[in-house]
């Protein structure tokens, strides 16, 4: 299940979303954005009113105010920060490991035909294994504590990063490389001045899909036995019948996922400014 989601998540990210989309200016886009909020906010409002007026019970599906109160209580007691910190550390460590491994393997496979022939079939084979299937093995190997969780997240992150950078290197325009060669660039200098900037936009997309999978896998990892973390809040909420806590944790996941993704985009934006100029083409004749 998670695997299918993951694959479609990668597909949609890679095909639809360029790393830095040009920002439209003016009030029209703002109004459209607000329109997008109308549906979820309206639904929440209706639900809140329905429960307050006694039309619905709201025991299994608590109202926004109850969820907010629950979250606030967790925040005041300090538990929320503890769980957030634990989960963030897991995602951070797993993401870092996965990115390093995926990048190294992707560069190796993208840079030489020999490397590709050697690595790619094995990695494609491993990729076909639903990553959750590794869980029992990782627990045997690394124990029930942090190591097995981080390993699982790293595996989830590594594959999209590998595929992204591998494909991006293969797709670099041969003509641009040749233009670099005509300025006597070879080897490391060619990689630094031509390949790296050419690959960067695709690499950022790959990192974003990797990060998305990292968040997905941290939940799976925390399901397999944790005493801290947002995933633990989910399990705990289910076992003790606290739907408000579950929804609060889901909401926190959404905020953190979006925030870390935005951080990644913001960090890469200065290097991708050249892409951010659509629609500003000068119309003067040459």
């Amino acid at each position: 299940m998670i695997r299918a989601d993951a694959v479609s998540a990668i597909d949609s990210l890679a095909s639809v979303e360029p790393a830095a989309r040009p920002r439209r200016r003016g009030g029209a886009s703002l109004r459209l954005a607000l329109l997008g909020l109308a549906l979820p906010l309206g639904a929440l409002l209706v639900w809140e009113i329905a429960v307050r007026l006694g039309w619905a019970q709201g025991r299994l599906m608590p109202t926004p105010s109850v969820v907010a109160a629950n979250l606030a209580q967790l925040a005041v007691s300090g538990d929320l920060w503890l769980h957030i910190r634990t989960t963030l550390l897991r995602v951070g460590a797993g993401f870092a490991l996965g990115v390093v491994a995926g990048t190294a393997l992707g560069v190796l496979a993208g840079a030489s035909a020999l490397g590709r022939a050697l690595i790619d079939p094995t990695l494609q084979g491993l990729r076909a294994i639903p990553s959750i299937a590794w869980v029992p093995l990782f627990i045997l190997w690394f124990g029930i504590l942090e190591a097995s969780k981080i390993a699982l997240i790293a595996v989830g992150v590594a594959f999209p990063v590998y595929l992204g950078i591998f494909g991006a290197i293969l797709a670099v325009d041969r003509k641009i490389i040749e233009a670099g060669r005509s300025f006597r660039l070879e080897g490391v200098a060619l990689a630094r001045r031509i390949l790296f900037p050419a690959v960067l936009p695709h690499y950022v997309v790959a990192l974003r899909s990797g990060l998305g999978l990292g968040w997905m896998f941290v939940v799976a990892a925390e399901f397999m036995g944790a005493s801290e973390g947002l995933g633990y809040l989910l399990v705990d909420g289910q076992q003790l019948g606290k739907p408000a806590q579950i929804i609060g944790a889901i909401f926190t996941f959404a905020v953190l996922g979006k925030a870390t993704d935005a951080l990644l985009v913001a960090a890469s934006a200065p290097f991708l400014r050249w892409q951010d100029t659509l629609g500003q083409t000068s119309g003067e004749g040459g």
Partner: peptide, 21 residues
């Protein structure tokens, strides 16, 4: 035997590096 510093090339397409001004 390799691209020479005293020889410049202009191709059919501009082949500018899009990430540079």
């Amino acid at each position: 035997s390799a691209p020479h510093p005293a020889v410049g090339v202009v191709f059919q397409e501009p082949r500018l590096f899009p990430w540079l001004t």
